[in-house]
Design a binder for these strands. Structure first.
Lengths: 218, 218
DNA sequence: CAATCATTCAACGTAATTATTGAATGATAC
DNA sequence: GTATCATTCAATAATTACGTTGAATGATTG
């Protein structure tokens, strides 16, 4: 298969890896796997794919270097192969945000309008955490919280938020986060909680970026 | 076209940009454009595509945010849209180098065997340039040299190298470079010159990375 | 203003990608 | 050792991507 021209061979392999990123649902799977490893069935359910179809996508990303997998009992758990995969998706996001008109519009029109106040930077949050001045709220589903979260964060999945308001202190500042820059859970949590009088802001990006920055996790 | 779900819309656009990277010849075009802007015809000739086919690839990369273009006389010159595009291709290379077995093999087997000695880092070269202790040799084609090069570098395209050996001083150290980490021109130049008794090493990566690092250019 | 020329478009056949379906693995668990 | 279950494979049909050909565009140049 490998041509006599080594550069052609390399670029053909690079192209295969890039192609593996070239599908919206696969990018959603990568966002989920950035939270932690997951089974085929769990990914299929959360992304809205049939199990066979999800398995196809996963094996393709496995072949091209994006994912690794291991067996745990009867399930097979997939995970991001390497921190460099997270850097690659981040670089892709940056290019599109800067250079694709529709992306800029959606981000301005949808994500920014929902967060008039400045998001909290990772650095600021990690300082305030040390001082114990802030409540951190993780609004991802329980299993993602269980796979790792910001220290001392409390987990209230967005769907349960209105039912569990009493668990959130009203007198302290709250910082909510979820999966990453394009995850809407934290945006919606901020909107809901502000409507009920809470003092709440959103963390920039999400848990994978927190972890990738080398900050402590539980 | 944009769905009611903003995240799906975003990820669909991200996927289109990723797909634009998913073709070996397009990656070669991006490597050439990292040297500087070029016309459709020049790119087609150098990559070995028909003009119509090259135009298709270029327009696709333009649509998806990778390229920009401008008119100059009767030609249209394409260029990388943004430094973030270079970061994206670099991130792609990193993922494949770390996680794709065949890529690791080709790099070890072909690129490393040809350069037993350590390559010169950008920092080291820029220091030695200040001291005037080193001759820098640019072995890319003339037009790429003309679009920008390392300060004081002399340009001898690889094909002319054996004919123009007398232009290279024998008593000083020579550092050769070309387009980037997968460009074989500098490797071959080092091999040829060492065979003739020159004291020559290779610069890490190539001109685009030198420029992207903020180092001076002519 | 007509001719030129680089680039783009349109149409075509071929190949690759995608989602679905149902069967086949193959390791676990009883 | 057999049944179970999550995952993968194989085959299909629909869609999309690819390269070639030849015509069209459209700005420049004389």
């Amino acid at each position: 298969m490998s041509s006599e021209n080594p550069k052609r061979t390399l670029f053909a392999r690079f192209a295969e890896t890039a192609k593996a990123l070239g599908h919206g649902r696969r990018l959603e799977i990568l966002e989920l796997l950035a939270q932690g490893e997951r089974s085929v069935e769990a990914l299929a359910e959360r992304v809205g794919l049939s199990i066979a179809n999800a398995s196809q996508h996963l094996r393709l990303m496995h072949r091209t270097g994006l994912l690794a997998s291991r067996r745990d009992g009867k399930r097979i758990l997939y995970r991001l192969n390497d921190p460099s995969v997270l850097e690659l998706t981040a670089a892709l996001h940056r290019v599109a945000e800067r250079n694709v008109a529709e992306v800029r519009e959606v981000i301005r029109g949808y994500f920014h309008e929902r967060d008039a106040l400045e998001p909290v930077s990772r650095k600021e949050l990690s300082q305030r955490l040390r001082d114990g001045l802030v409540t951190v709220l993780d609004v991802r589903p329980e299993d993602e919280y269980a796979a790792g979260h910001v220290p001392k964060a409390i987990n209230i999945p967005l769907r349960e938020l209105t039912r569990r308001l009493r668990q959130i202190p009203k007198n302290r500042e709250v910082v909510a986060y979820c999966r990453g820059p394009y995850c809407v859970l934290a945006f919606e949590a901020v909107a809901i909680l502000r409507g009920r009088g809470f003092k709440v802001r959103r963390l920039e990006d999400g848990y994978p970026e927190w972890k990738a920055a080398g900050l402590p996790t539980d």
